[in-house]
């Protein structure tokens, strides 16, 4: 066990032990929530694609920890973790995955299109890189109004190879929008390794040419992500300038529900997955909490049980929720115009 002074030194100045525990418990919630997803999917409770974030929890948790209430964020379709880290009710997230009316998008978006407007989470998007130009517009809107908010824009390494992202990065720098581009490099765009797909595999290096600060950081260590994100977000909020940060991370599961272990064997080895599982951000943080004396073994077990309980409650809530009424089919196409039933 470390002394209190030693713990203080190991933690970023703004991070109290209590706050660290909160963030750890956020990661636990994300993990347990998603561990309930696959069984529910197999039982036919969910449909569509389902992309889990398991292994990458420290990234969303560490960045979103620094968002103010009035900040914005957008992300890709691998969005469960981002919503939960932002504080969206896990029951309503699960209900969305179940296609229920109580879901965050009334059951009309599904796993890929979570949203929480009250918390500035303006959506998960299903087209790779498609949300990056949107983030530039959100950032431009912030500047237009003279605000000091920031917009966090999360996307994967695969997005670095699609044109609109490069249009957007260039425009972000031209207009000096307060956007943090968080490129979560989990090594694979579906099954395609970043070294194959990107002629310059160091994505922070590649983004350097856009005239904004860039950085590559380690994404499996919550404390490191927290420390880096704090500095980057502060810089973007006060300068203002966009920032590109490549976060090295790893997804332990397949790309989506259909990317089973047999398919995964086509592009990565068990040894490789095992190497990264040894760097599990939840296990690492737990070890830190124990070693530093912030938490006891007993507390860790309690928090774990509590997170699992929350996940199970989310499943029960979703399961008990009604489907959207059939009239919803024709609602929300336009704000002010009825769409005629075709029958």
């Amino acid at each position: 066990m470390k002394t209190e002074v030693a713990v203080r030194k190991a933690l970023p100045e703004s991070l109290t032990p209590q706050r660290l525990v909160e963030l750890y418990r956020t990661m636990l919630l994300i993990r347990h929530f998603e561990e309930q997803c696959s069984p529910a999917y197999r039982q036919g409770k969910m449909g569509g694609y389902m992309h889990v974030y398991i292994g990458q929890e420290a990234v969303a948790t560490g960045f979103i920890a620094h968002m103010r209430d009035d900040d914005y964020m957008v992300c890709s379709y691998r969005d469960h973790g981002h919503a939960l880290a932002r504080g969206t009710d896990p029951r309503r997230v699960m209900a969305e995955l179940f296609g229920r009316y109580t879901g965050v998008s009334k059951g009309k978006g599904g796993s890929m299109h979570l949203v929480d407007v009250e918390r500035g989470f303006l959506g998960g998007y299903g087209i790779v890189g498609g949300m990056v130009p949107l983030a530039v517009g959100i950032g431009y809107g912030i500047r237009y109004r003279g605000g000091d908010q920031v917009c966090l824009c999360f996307f994967g390494d695969g997005a670095m190879n699609i044109g609109p992202v490069h249009e957007a990065l260039n425009m972000a720098a031209i207009y000096k929008v307060p956007v943090v581009f968080v490129c979560e490099n989990n090594r694979y765009a579906m099954a395609t390794p970043v070294e194959f797909a990107s002629a310059v595999p160091n994505l922070a290096e590649r983004a350097k040419q856009y005239g904004m600060p860039t950085r590559q950081i380690e994404g499996m260590d919550l404390l490191e992500v927290y420390r880096q994100a704090e500095e980057i977000i502060r810089q973007v909020r006060t300068t203002p300038t966009p920032f590109f940060v490549e976060v090295i991370t790893y997804r332990f599961e397949g790309h989506g529900i259909a990317d089973n272990p047999t398919n995964q064997a086509l592009y990565r080895t068990k040894e490789e997955v095992e190497y990264w599982r040894q760097r599990d951000p939840i296990v690492n943080t737990a070890r830190f909490l124990l070693d530093s004396g912030i938490a006891t073994e007993q507390q860790l077990l309690e928090w774990d049980a509590h997170a699992k309980q929350q996940a199970l409650e989310a499943v029960a809530y979703a399961d008990a929720s009604p489907e959207p009424p059939i009239e919803e089919l024709y609602r929300d196409v336009y704000t002010d115009m009825e769409v005629q039933e075709w029958r």
């Binding site: 914005y72 303006l122 498609g130 990056v132 130009p133 949107l134 983030a135 530039v136 517009g137 959100i138 950032g139 431009y140 809107g141 912030i142 237009y144 044109g163 609109p164 249009e167 957007a168 260039n170 425009m171």
Partner: peptide, 16 residues
């Protein structure tokens, strides 16, 4: 940058 222009306009519209 037509995608950039359209996306920027959409993003700004999303926040009012």
């Amino acid at each position: 940058s037509e995608s950039g222009i359209a996306g920027m306009a959409i993003g700004a519209a999303m926040i009012g």
